[in-house]
């Protein structure tokens, strides 16, 4: 399954997913009201230490920070230009700590377990006549459709390339939409043919 999950069996992998999610939620709530550089330095050391407990592969996951380098630099620059560099540093550190902590949960929790942990939150859907299984089924369908969509697009691109000798064009988007939408109609029919999202057990 497509995920950022890091295969492993560390202490962090074994913690229940719900607990980890709760910890991150509480952590970001608290850190939002903290503005001391010293506390953040401590947090930064602590969170890097968390990654270190996963071993070398864990530390390698720190590269996920690449995605926010742009933000951090831009942020410091803007604050520096407006003469509030101190505040800029605090904000940047908070950003790095919170991103690292949240990603730590993501890389140590399987997508399935994460899903199971949050599914009970959807139980009230029943009150609206929607099966509580619906969100899980939706997630599965997305994971099934996404690779197929990319396949449809690359086939169209080949056909386009074969006739125009050009790589790709926004013109492909409309036929892409039509072809793939037709597929989704068929899948909807196939789902209904096997009893639909609510299942067959509720009706005797």
């Amino acid at each position: 399954m497509i995920s950022m999950y890091l295969q492993g069996d560390s202490w962090a992998h074994r913690l229940p997913a719900g607990l980890k999610l709760l910890a991150v939620a509480l952590g970001s709530l608290i850190l939002f009201h903290v503005s001391s550089v010293w506390i953040f330095t401590g947090c930064l050391v602590a969170v890097v230490a968390l990654y270190a407990t996963l071993g070398r592969e864990g530390l390698a996951q720190l590269r996920l920070l690449r995605g926010i380098v742009f933000f951090v630099v831009a942020l410091l620059a803007i604050h520096w230009l407006s003469g509030s560099l101190d505040e800029g540093v605090v904000v940047a550190m908070r950003l790095v700590v919170m991103v690292l902590a949240a990603n730590f949960v993501t890389i140590t929790t399987r997508l399935d377990d994460m899903l199971d942990a949050v599914l009970p939150l959807f139980a009230p859907l029943k009150l609206f006549g929607v099966s509580p299984r619906t969100p899980a089924l939706g997630v599965t369908l997305v994971l099934r459709f996404a690779p197929h969509l990319m396949l449809v697009f690359s086939r169209l691109r080949e056909a386009w390339q074969a006739r125009t000798a050009r790589r790709s064009s926004w013109r492909l988007l409309a036929p892409f939409a039509i072809q793939s939408l037709r597929m989704s109609d068929n899948v909807a029919e196939a789902l209904k043919a096997r009893g639909g999202s609510a299942g067959l057990s509720s009706s005797p």
Partner: peptide, 28 residues
Amino acid sequence: LLFLFLVALGAPFLAGGRGGLGVFQTPS
């Protein structure tokens, strides 16, 4: 919302292969 739910669960579906809970902590 379903898409963001998957991203939060850990699917690297945001542009540039980003995903996970961390993206909800950034300025974007």
